[in-house]
Measured scan of single mutants.
Amino acid sequence: MDETGKELVLALYDYQEKSPREVTMKKGDILTLLNSTNKDSWKVEVKITVNGKTYERQGFVPAAYVKKL
């Protein structure tokens, strides 16, 4: 869990989004878990840094590609 009590997951593999509802992640990324009720895909939040500014983006990733921490 992070400092706000949200559950975290670790990306086990790289994943490139295939639709606007998904998010891209790299192996080793730590993501905030938002919903894990679907056995196939979990909703997560990723933090992306562009030019020194951090943005948050929500979307789905394959459940088999992440592990709860």
Rank of each mutant, 00 (worst) to 15 (best):
V9A: 08
A64Y: 09
K43H: 10
D14P: 04
F60Y: 14
V50I: 14
S36Y: 07
D14V: 04
T37N: 12
K18M: 10
A63G: 03
G28D: 04
K39R: 11
P20A: 11
I48D: 04
I30G: 00
D2V: 14
L69K: 00
K43C: 15
G5Y: 13
N35G: 05
T49A: 07
L34D: 00
L31V: 06
P62G: 03
T49Y: 10
D29W: 12
T49W: 09
N38S: 10
K6Y: 14
M25A: 02
Y13R: 15
L10G: 01
L33Q: 01
K68Y: 08
K47V: 12
L69E: 02
W42G: 00
S41H: 15
A11F: 03
W42N: 00
A64V: 10
V61E: 00
D29R: 02
K43T: 06
D14C: 07
K6G: 10
T32M: 10
V66P: 02
Y65F: 13
D29L: 05
L10H: 03
R21I: 13
P20Y: 07
A64T: 09
K39G: 10
T4D: 12
I48E: 07
P62F: 10
F60M: 07
T4E: 12
W42V: 04
I48C: 12
Q16V: 14
P62S: 04
D40A: 08
F60H: 05
Y65C: 15
M25E: 00
R21F: 14
V9C: 12
Y15K: 01
P62V: 07
L10K: 07
S36T: 09
V9S: 00
E17S: 15
V66G: 00
K68N: 05
S41M: 15
T37M: 10
K26C: 12
G5D: 11
T49D: 08
V61Y: 00
D14Q: 02
Y55N: 05
G28L: 03
E17L: 06
M1S: 12
K27L: 04
A64L: 09
V66R: 01
G52W: 04
W42E: 00
K27F: 05
T4L: 12
T37E: 14
A11V: 10
K67D: 07
V44Q: 00
K68A: 08
E22T: 05
D2A: 13
L34R: 02
N35V: 07
T54I: 12
R21P: 04
V50Y: 09
R21G: 15
E17K: 13
D40R: 10
S19R: 06
V61L: 03
K68L: 14
K53T: 12
K68M: 11
R21Q: 14
T49H: 10
V50E: 10
N51K: 08
E56I: 15
Y65N: 07
G28W: 05
Q58D: 05
L69T: 03
V46L: 12
G52V: 02
P20K: 09
Y55G: 05
L8A: 05
D14H: 04
T4F: 12
Y15Q: 01
K18V: 08
N35H: 06
T37G: 09
E22P: 06
K53G: 07
K43P: 00
Y13S: 08
K68R: 12
N35F: 06
S41I: 14
F60P: 00
